[in-house]
Amino acid sequence: MAATLLALALALSPAVEQKRMAAEDARQGVVSDGRHLFAIDNATIAKLDPRAGSVLSRWSGDPALFRHMNSCIALKARLVCAASNYPKTPMASSVEWFDTRSMKHVASRSLGPGRGSLTWLDWHDGSWWACFANYDGKGGDAGRDHRSTTIVQYDSRFVEQGAWLLPDSVLERMAPYSSSGGVWGRDGYLYVTGHDRPELYVLKLPEAGSELLHVGTMAIPTNGQAIAWDPNEPRLLWSIERSTRSIVASRVPPVDEQAAARR
């Protein structure tokens, strides 16, 4: 059954690269607020001119406090970032807020230890959606591996509303790592990346149960890590190529609704 699901997933049309630029800080992810790009590293965020690729300003934090910034989203005049203490255990996580104009750190909320390492966070349909990654070996809590990766829905005050596991057909592509990026699309699908494969996994909520449904998989030009939609151009997705420290924009084709219905 898993092989059949994976075969259907691979039938999705690939994303097409539109633009690529160098960015020294592009180690964990990238996000766009519609005016600027922000390249994310463990304890730094660079604000970039999206046309020239030049650095306009850079926030640098204390590595003892900001050990592992994983990803950010742009929400109004703020960057909201998912952070963790990776590779320390027990795994603990926090949400960090930054002002996009001044590039100052303005707020923090500790989520503490619990489900895993917070790798991405999105605001969708009046809720926070968070991925808590688990890994095989280094950086993983005892008794857990990549199969324990969990997507959690919170209300606006971070009170848990629900939680789901990833399907086996996605987990087997991520092993021994986990999900590094995730964003909800305007089409109602959740788009998720792993750690190193050049693939985008399209998921949706189930009618019942606690496991997300795997709608399809599409090839993308970059190898996993954090992703973000462009707020001005529909279906333009920003991602990074860690090996070359590059930021890449790709056009993501619409999901085939007939293929999705067969799930």
Rank of each mutant, 00 (worst) to 15 (best):
E211M: 14
Y191T: 00
L205P: 07
L213A: 12
Y189A: 07
L200D: 13
G188H: 03
S210K: 15
P231S: 07
N223L: 11
V192Y: 09
D187T: 00
G188A: 11
I247S: 07
E211A: 14
D230T: 02
S239V: 01
L237I: 12
T244H: 12
S243A: 15
P234I: 01
G185R: 13
L236Y: 11
L213D: 09
E241M: 06
G224S: 12
S179P: 02
A219K: 15
L236S: 11
L190P: 04
S180R: 03
W229G: 10
P234V: 00
G224M: 06
S180K: 03
G188I: 00
L205T: 04
S243T: 13
S178D: 13
P198S: 04
I247F: 07
E199Q: 15
T193H: 00
E211Y: 00
P198N: 02
P176I: 03
W238V: 04
L212P: 11
V192A: 13
V183A: 06
Q225K: 14
G181E: 00
P176F: 03
P198H: 02
H214G: 04
Y201Q: 08
W229L: 06
I220C: 05
D196I: 07
A219C: 00
D187W: 01
T217I: 07
S246N: 11
L212N: 09
V183Q: 15
D230Q: 01
E211F: 00
E211N: 08
A226Q: 05
S246K: 07
L203W: 02
D196H: 09
G194E: 06
S179Y: 00
S179W: 02
E211T: 15
A228W: 06
H214A: 13
G185E: 02
L212Q: 06
L205G: 05
P234D: 12
R245H: 15
P176A: 10
R197G: 04
I247H: 08
I227R: 05
L203M: 14
I247V: 15
D196T: 13
L205S: 07
R235K: 10
G181D: 01
G185N: 01
R242Y: 12
R235A: 12
H214M: 11
S243C: 04
D196F: 08
E199P: 02
S246I: 02
S239E: 03
V183Y: 00
R242C: 05
E211S: 14
L200Y: 03
L212W: 12
T222E: 04
R197I: 11
T244W: 02
I240K: 02
S178Q: 02
W184F: 15
D187K: 10
E233C: 04
L213C: 13
D196N: 12
Y177G: 10
E233S: 09
W229R: 08
V183T: 12
A226K: 09
R197Y: 01
D230N: 12
A228E: 10
W184A: 01
W238D: 04
Y201S: 14
M218G: 06
H195G: 03
G188D: 07
